[in-house]
Design a protein around this nucleic acid. Structure first.
Lengths: 142, 142
DNA sequence: TCAATAGCCTGGAATCGTTCCAAATTTAAT
DNA sequence: ATTAAATTTGGAACGATTCCAGGCTATTGA
């Protein structure tokens, strides 16, 4: 008799299929983990560490591969902050970012909280892939 | 008899002094080189290579030191594009950037060509250090 | 259902950009 | 000139990321 399957990962599996990525164990688990806990900004290392903590067996190379593939497929968005500091953002809708320099932390800004208008046209032969707004914050004390 | 000194580097020397940096031979030469040729976007390696080409004797470590010091003093602006790709921009006035993904090239956008308005207030205890707008472009061909 | 095959995962080595270090040199102040 | 402080240097070290070759796994289609 066919048992009802575990539905825990159905969403992740579907998302991967739709993105044209094979729903391998590692990718499914990582995507599921990424999507747990709302919108987040994680480094590759953060994700690898989280995965390890909950007992997933995934190599660091695979974490990098998966994050890059997810980003390319539009399942994630990458925000690069400084040489050697980059975060993957699970919020893929249009929005912007505050960056707290001291804390090295990102925070989403809803897209309607900033208006970017009168964009110059994309130069000939190109099209806009993305408009990125980062507001860098420093502690107020002088 | 005191000869008239070489004025070639006067501007660079003055800028360094004003920034509170000692006008050492290396810093003067590098700043001068940076400012030659209008607004530019150079990686550390680009600058080191250029310096070498014109016969300057500067170590790579010094190039990095100088670029970081110049950036901190407001003589330069750093634009980070991707993990491992960052440029130093000699244009320190307010402006934004196009980034051509394929060519890995930056291009300035005059500040008045984009309007960023209704910025949300900086969170309590912080102030805005900088607002960064990068318009990422990809080749138009499908 | 089960092989065949294309794609994926892995640990470790390699690479890249960047920073660190201690010694030697240079600058600025006396 | 002398001295103290700052700077430069080459090379080692570093952290993040990518590469690689071999073993595994998902998908295909017979």
């Amino acid at each position: 008799m066919i048992m009802t399957r575990d539905r825990t990962f159905t969403l992740a599996v579907d998302a991967l299929k739709e993105a044209g990525l094979r729903p391998t164990r590692q990718r499914v688990q990582l995507l599921h983990l990424l999507r747990a806990g709302g919108n987040r900004h994680l480094s590759a290392d953060d994700l690898a560490r989280e995965a390890k903590k909950i007992g997933l067996s995934v190599s660091l190379a695979t974490v990098y591969n998966a994050l890059n593939q997810f980003t390319q497929s539009g399942l994630l968005r990458e925000v690069v902050i400084a040489p050697g500091i980059s975060y993957f953002d699970t919020n893929i809708g249009p929005h912007h970012h505050f960056y707290f320099e001291e804390e090295r932390r990102l925070q989403d800004i809803p897209v309607d909280a900033v208006s970017v208008s009168d964009l110059p046209p994309a130069p000939m032969g190109t099209k806009v892939a993305r408009v990125e707004v980062v507001i860098r914050l420093e502690s107020e004390q002088k």
